[in-house]
Design a protein around this nucleic acid. Structure first.
Lengths: 365, 365
DNA sequence: CTGAAAGCGCTTACAG
DNA sequence: CTGAAAGCGCTTACAG
């Protein structure tokens, strides 16, 4: 039997000190205390020191509501997770991103407000509400699309924001991005160097910008390298669709020894690149079931590394990014923006190729 | 080149309406408007309707800071993730929990504040800060320990809280819990019914309450059923330690045909139960590497189901809980508590046994 | 049923 | 360098 103030059992909750209390103890006005506390000019060094000591001693902390109301910041940034709730928890990506953002924010005692939104409408509604209620100072925008209505909404609201993704398609909002096209070239060149001439790609959601950028780069590099066959299947990132795509790809007959022109759909790839770790793992399982040896008959690669890739057998070759750092970089830039500084786009590090046991020379190229 | 208010390019951000604006348009006092908006008695139905229509038309939303400052709620609940940032993103548990909490909160337009804290000290500091700054109305407390200093901190602060975990060891705070002991009995009885007489457990962090409760139940049911051998290895939930524990367990020689008393450490289990999905998957990989057939030579089970369990080969038999519902139940109770209602402990559904391909009769029991 | 007023705890011009 | 005062946008007793 507890009531909300926790006082049911007689717990005495001491009133939290305010600047008025500090002012009284210090024999100053509230204004002077405020200046001292905020490092503003207008008080002597000795006064400032005394006020800061008193504040610490009395356990004073700024009331965030009062601060926000008097025009300063709310000290809160917002992040909407653009996934139906049921799909979250599958990909480690978002949790790592959150951890990275958090890390960068902690030093500035800024909080992170989180919301799960199943679609873009719900997401736009969240931004409108947050901004109207003055709940956040700014937001992070993830999962950039080729045609992305959110950009306009955020710009119209005047809501400070940093886009995580790109390059391009993010209006006048600054973005933090990685060069997915260059990474794709690196991956396909690696597979081609091993001798693969038939490479498939199991891609994520079609509308997403990075899906498109990777897709274009995949087509280009396949052409440049003169691969005999390349093909893409799009999915929703789920393990199910990853498995299904794999089954379809592996059901095709292997390439004939004479490498003449064959119908695209009827050629079986010797290597598959997946757009996330979950699908790559699911694909590996499907290969096992179908008696397709990895990496003997099929090389498998995952875009975005995680423990998942390490713990299965064989461990998966993957494209590894420091996602925590990615989130931290975005957070630093949003804080800069809120400080009134100009923020330009920032290109994060290239993903690294982590070679493990799931890729090898094809048995029959 | 953008400044924080987004106005650099001349974007006109219209001033958000306040209750004063509504009062003026309606020819009422601010007080009357406030009563109308909040469903308080003191205004006629027709006035209330007119005010609500005006508010909608003008796009009014309550300024959360003003509301919080004048003594009402902040409309924000807090959750600290008690893991070093690098370990997050591995277990789907927290993301699902967050999604569940979010779902329940959305209907009440309550926000969720998130922080990552590497240890209990950092966590306690977060609670103190949040409460001192009046950032949250209440918090969720997860990863309950047998000796848990956080309980006292939260009680002393008078910070409304709901504990996710139990039963017991949560002081006077209400808790939402599942019966891990009963679930453990169910699991071991299932394995024993298959014919397993040598069962090992790869447990999570030693100090956690549910680790201890499961451990005690494991010992009890092993004794009750008269298993020939049972043993536990504790870990930190990581894939690495799960793999290592598995290697150690499988390195022991199989039980001799004569079932006389054998030294405990030297007996190889025919079934292993893991405290999370990640370790179960890692363990399955180790078995493959060591040429131990799953489920022929070794049955494997995971506590807490996830896609991970479904996508590997063989798919893992698991103990499945609806973690989103778990989070939602906790959120509902915290909201109740904040409404001033008495909240009692709530026992959530028993986990379900989901039987897949990783468990079978032992080849040599 | 309605209005006028005080107050929440800060910040920030404005005087001295 | 310091003090007195207004104001942010709400809520809530207190009079009428």
């Amino acid at each position: 039997m507890l009531t909300a103030d926790g006082s049911a059992e007689g717990a005495r909750v001491t009133k939290r000190p305010t600047i008025a209390d500090i002012a009284q103890r210090a024999g100053l006005s509230k204004g002077a205390v405020s200046y001292a506390l905020n490092g503003q000019p207008g008080v002597s060094e000795s006064t400032r020191r005394r006020v800061l000591e008193l504040a610490t001693e009395m356990g004073w902390r700024p009331n965030s509501a009062a601060r926000a109301l008097s025009g300063a910041r709310t000290g809160t940034l917002g992040l909407v997770l653009p996934r139906p709730a049921t799909l979250l928890g599958v990909e480690p990506f978002f949790m790592k991103l959150i951890a990275g953002i958090e890390n960068a924010l902690a030093a500035r005692s800024t909080a992170l407000l989180l919301q799960v939104a199943p679609d873009h409408d719900a997401e736009a509604a969240a931004y409108r509400r947050w901004w109207a209620e003055r709940r956040v100072d700014g937001i992070f925008l993830v999962d950039l699309r080729v045609e992305d209505g959110r950009i306009r909404v955020v710009e119209e609201l005047g809501l400070p924001a940093v886009v995580i993704g790109g390059p391009g398609h993010h209006g006048r909002l600054p973005s933090v991005w990685t060069d997915d096209a260059a990474a794709m070239v690196m991956v396909v060149e690696y597979l081609a160097a091993l001798g693969h001439r038939h490479i498939a790609r199991v891609a994520g959601l079609p509308g997403l910008l990075h899906t498109e950028l990777r897709g274009r780069a995949f087509g280009d590099v396949a052409a440049t390298l003169g691969l005999e066959w390349s093909g893409t299947v799009t999915t929703d990132y789920s393990a199910d669709q990853g498995a299904q795509a794999t089954r379809r790809l592996l059901s095709a007959s292997p390439a004939p020894q004479s490498s003449g022109p064959t119908p695209r759909a009827a050629t079986r790839p010797t290597a598959i690149l997946y757009d996330n770790d979950v699908m790559a793992v699911a694909g590996t399982s499907v290969a096992h079931e179908m008696g397709v040896d990895v990496p003997g008959d099929l090389s498998i690669m995952a875009w975005d590394d995680s423990v998942l890739c390490e713990i299965i057998h064989p461990p998966l070759t993957a494209l590894s990014r420091d996602i925590m750092a990615y989130g931290a970089h975005a957070a630093e830039r949003l804080l800069e923006l809120l400080d009134g500084n100009a923020v330009t786009d920032f290109q994060d590090d290239m993903p690294r190729l982590v070679i493990r046991g799931s890729t090898a020379r094809p048995r029959s190229p």
